[in-house]
Structures are given as C-alpha cells and as structure tokens.
Design a protein around this nucleic acid. Sequence first.
DNA 1: ACCTCAAACATTTTT
DNA 2: TGTTTGAGGT
Length: 754
Amino acid sequence: MENYLEKLNPAQRKAAMHTDGPVMVIAGAGSGKTRVLTYRIVHLLKQKINPFNILALTFTNKASKEMRNRIEEIVGEDNARNLWMGTFHSIFSKILRFEAEKINYSPNFTIYDTEDSKNLIKSIIKELNLDKEIYKTGIIRNRISTLKNNFITVDKYIQNTDLNKQDNIAKRTEFGKIYQLYCSRCQKSSAMDFDDLLLKTYELFDNDKDVLSKYQEKFKYILIDEYQDTNHVQYLIIKKLAKLYKNICIVGDDAQSIYSFRGANIQNILNFKLDYPEYKTYKLEQNYRSTKTIVEAANSIIKKNEKQIKKNVWTNNKEGDKIIIAKTGSDNDEGRLVANTISDIKTKYQTQYKDFAILYRTNAQSRALEESLRKRNLSYKIYGGISFYQRKEIKDILAYFRLIINPNDDEALKRIINFPRRGIGLTTIQNLNLIANNNNTTIWKIIKSLDKYEININKGTIKKLEEFSLFINNFIINAKKKEAFILAEEIIKQTGLLSSLSADTSMEGISRLDNVQELLNGLKNFCESNENNKLSDFMQEVSLLTDQDQEKEDDDNKITLMTVHAAKGLEFPYVFIVGLEENLFPNVMSSESQESLEEERRLFYVAITRAEKRLFISFASTRFKWGQFTECIPSRFINELDNKYIEKQEMAIEKEYYQHSIQTKTKYRKKELFQIKNKTSKKLININKTKNISINKNDLTNITNGMQVRHNQFGTGKVINISGDGNNKKAIVFFNGIGQKQLLLKFAKLEILN
DNA sequence: ACCTCAAACATTTTT
DNA sequence: TGTTTGAGGT
C-alpha cells in the first residue's frame, strides 16, 4: 500500500502525480491509461483530499465500477465511498434530480430512451398531419439529438438561417415546429431524453450562478476518461465546472475516437490547449497489452489517417504470431471457421472461453456466429442488440413502474393503458391525446378528472378509464410506503401479466417469463442492498443501465460477442474480427467522406488493439443480407495492413492449422463439403433469380446523365448526376413536379425510358 | 375493438 | 431476412 506508485512506469507516474493544474494525458492503446487515472485518484486521497471533492467521469458504468473497486482495494472502502464517479449521464442525472425544481422538473423525472423519443416524435408528426415519408422519425430524432449535443436549443435553431435552409432543402419545413413540440411535451411529462441530461445540466449551470459555484466548489478535482469521445455540451459543462480551480485531468487517445455519430468532437482536445494555456501534456506510448506484431500492424493502419496527434506506440512484448487473414465462402462459413478455430485453440492450448472475443461492425452479424458456436457447443455471451431492459416484456413492466412514479409520463401510459387488454383502444387513446394537447396537460390528468373536460367518449369506455385510474392510483399511494420488490410483485400479479406469461408455454413465452423473473430478482437484490429501496430509487438506477452493466452470475467464463464499439476499453488474449468487407467495414454509410472513412479506420484500429496474443481477421465472399445473397469484396483495410505482419489463408479449414487433430478434421471436412455443396446450389438459384429480374426490368449499369427514367412513386424525371459505383452507385434525378431526389440504384426501381 | 394475414419495407455504431 | 403497416373480417 505504501508503494502504490511503484506500480507505474515513469511516464505514468508523472501524469498521476501532477495534481496541481490542468493535465492532458494522451495515451496509446494498451498503455495503461485507466491505471493512471486510478492511481491519480489514489494519490489525491493519500494527500488527504476529501473524496467528496473529486469528480471522475468515465465512458461506461462498468468502467467506473471497476475503477472504484480497484481504488477501494488500495485505500479501503470507507475512503473511496464518497467519490463522485460515473458516466456523464449518471452523474448529471443525479445532480438534476437534486436541483430539479430549479429547472421546473419533478425530481422523479422519467428518462426517455430512444424508443420513447421516437414514439413521441411519431405522434407529433401524425398530429401535425405531416407526410411520414418525408418526416422519418429516426432521422428527426437524430437531428434533434445532434442539435442538443451541440447546444442548439429550439430558440437558437429558429434563429439559425443555415440550419433552417438545410431543412428547407430537405423539404422538412416543419422541423422547427416538431423540435419545439417535442421539447414542450417532454417538459410537460417531466421527462428527459439522454441528451437532455447533458443539455439541462449546462442550462442549469448557465442560468443559476449559485448552483454553479456550489458545484465548482464541490468538484475541486475533475478527471475525465475517454476524452476523445466527449461532445460539445459535455465540453461546455466541464469548462464551467473547472473554471474556478482549473484542476482538471483529461485522458484520451485521438486514434480511438469512434463516437462522432453521437456528437463526439476531437476539437475538444484542441480546445483544451486554448482553455488552459498552462496545461501540461503527458504521452503514454508503451503498450503493455499486445505482441509486437499486433502493435506494429495497428500502427501501420492508423498511419493512413491524416488527422491525428503524432505518437509512437511501442512495446517490449515478444514478437508473437502473425495475424491470420482468412477468406471464407459465406457468412456461415465464416462463423464455422471462427467456431472451429476457437475450439481447436481451446483444446490445444488449454485456454478458457473468456479468453476469446469475436468483434463485428454491426449487431446483425452476430446471428451466423451464434449459430455456429451453438452447433459446436461453445458457450458464449452476446452484448448489444436488444438489451435486457429493451425487451418488450421488461419494458411493459417498467412502463408501469414509470407511470406510478411519474404519472405524467404519457409515453409510459400509452404503452400500458391497454396492456393487458382493458378495452381501451386506439381511438380512445388518440382522443385523450388530443384533449391533453389542446389543454396543455397530460393524459393522466385528463383521466383523473374526466368530468372537467368535454369528452367525446362513450359511457362504457369512460367506466373503463375510471377503473384504470383507480387501479394505478392505488399503486401510486403505495409506492411511497412499500419497498420496491413487494410493490413490483403486486403490480405483476394484479395486472395479470404474470398469469398470462405463465400460460404461454412456447419457447419464447418461457424465456419471457424467465426475463421477468430476472427483473424481480434484480429488484430483490436492490432492496436488500440499498437503504433507499423504494421503486423510485430503483428506477433512477435502471434507466441508465446498459447491457454491459447487467452481469449474470454464470457469465464469467464465456466467449464474448460484441460490436467493435462496445469493445472499447476491453482486452482479450484471442480476438477475431469478422466481416472485413467493403460496405460493411468500412460501413456503407461511411465510405462517402474522408472524415467518416477515417473514423472507420480508427474503429478498425480499436478492434486490432483489443488483442493480446493472437488476432484473426476474416471476410466472406458472399453474405446473406436483407433476404438475398450479396457478393462482397474484401475491405480496403486488409490491404492497408503491412504484409510482414500477416499470413493469408483461403478456406483456412483445410490448412495445417487444423491438422493437429486428424480425427476431427476428417469429420468436419465431410460435413463442410456436404453443407457447402448444398449452399452453393441454393446460392446459385437465388443469384439467378435476382439477376433475371434486374436484367430484364431495369438494367441500370449503363445509366448516364440526361436519361429519362421512371420511378413507380415519383413518376418520370431526368438524371442529372451519377456517383459512386457497385453497390454504392447513386443517381440524382429531377422528377417532374417533385424535384430532386437522390436514389441508391440498388434499391430504387428505376426504369430507363430512352 | 381486436385479430389475422399478406404486402411492403429497410440497410450502423449507443449513453 | 425479420419487422412493420394496412386491409379486411369477426
């Protein structure tokens, strides 16, 4: 314990001990940046700094939990307890609940997830009678999110001619109206989306000098992990908080910035130098994680990016094996290859499941992998996709919880008012929604005093609404008295959700019941380990939890499947990166601009640097996508890897790598051949089918500027520009009476007229 | 109000 | 391929 600083190398130690001024730590992958943060906090505590005055912001809840545990081990639980450590979102929601009345919110405000936001936007679009083809909920939500992350409030948006012009060009003239309504509805329901947690915190600090100075005094020491992935609002908040003491330490790696779609801004690192001219930089360049081959291969990739802070990541570790690059026939072959390889390594080197990770660009890729792992009886866990808290049955129950804590939460109410069936249908809900909006109130308030409003609903339904209101009200009264677990059990039983789930004996039904049971277990756990164990306390924790925070007991020794994004900050002895194909990795959406291509490259860099011992990269020449086999070409990133670090394998299944076990090899060869043969015939049929259609009806390979074309929705028009090739080929067409449209040729069913 | 089935449609990463 | 929407029937 005395020698805690001996755990650090000289560069790390300097960074950890420089605690009297702004510090920027640029840390290469695997260079021990978490270690620096951890020991920096330990060092502060050793100097008798009050933990209450330390704010440490991490990127995930999991990272903060792990860091806290590590610190507790060194300084003892009591000394670490009052540290303020967590994600931006969780720390700021804590502050916002505490200061809620200052911003006109209930301390029990609900946090809307993406689905809630989309539903709200959908109903606003419907209400305004807008064309849902032009106003797509997903796009609108993203745009609102981007605006909020850049601190462009509704007022600022309306004044911003550039932004207005953008929306006018996209024919979304009513966007401002939607944005404005969205915000006022959230306010009315006492709900915040993820972005509000940041935005409202900034507004709170900006508008209330007393509150700001209170937190400036409190957070004398500020530490931020993964700084390269902070966005503009986060930057503004931190700038305000750190203004008084300027005791701020940021840790990051520009080469690992992979969240620009969420508003992350590398500019924040550059601003740091301007905001704190007296800052000191430390570079951590020694990699402790990976073999020389892996480190140098990763360097050779990131070198291709133009935008970066120069650094030289190196390692003392041994050379290690070459990176294997395998070509496979299809996504299923790829899955089989990965599963076979894992199985072989496992028996050959006596490794454990948890030593392996399979990383992919998109969640959809997990299916083929899962299937082959299951077939070979390899135990795995999968992160992402639909997380536990997003499962329908869980969200339904959580909607009851939400409504009971915050009855003005209209989205929760709409979700469960007729689930299970109470005979309150769509028409009634729409009616109530309309009345609520006209009276600038919430559906719950209408239902509570039906007689006060002019309502066009028949007697029978009124009675049903009254029953519903009584039913919920009873729980609302109890919510303040009973502990969460007891109340939850009552809710699930009295609503009849439990009995209807138990009645469903299908596979899916059983797993749904399991999930509900798991939720109850979680609640029980929560009640036993927390003093404040009301439902509202539980919900405050839950709304910001993600999949990764949900550790199950038997999860510790399993193969990990996740997206590269989710793998940030993690490490594994054996790593498989799959699907290295053009339009997948790099992604279709990203091959447009240099900037997004560089981000994809950084993403690949992150993936490579997760590996400690060995790295396997694979790609398939056909992939089953959207109900069709599509031809794939290898990713440009593969060619960017220096040849001296790699070993190429085609259909690696037949190579020496697998020959150590002749018995299994022959067994699998037979199976492989059989399956491949089947697959090929199926494939051929499918390809022919699609080709026939496209050749006969609309062969667009020769499309050029000036051609007259017909689109079954937009009518006839003239091609004014062609760009991209292959799958990415796009046409800009001017349609008579409609205007310009950009169309992806592989989707748009264009017919050439002349 | 609710159920069922067929057609249309989509196409990234997440706190 | 899987999910969502709409029409039509009960």
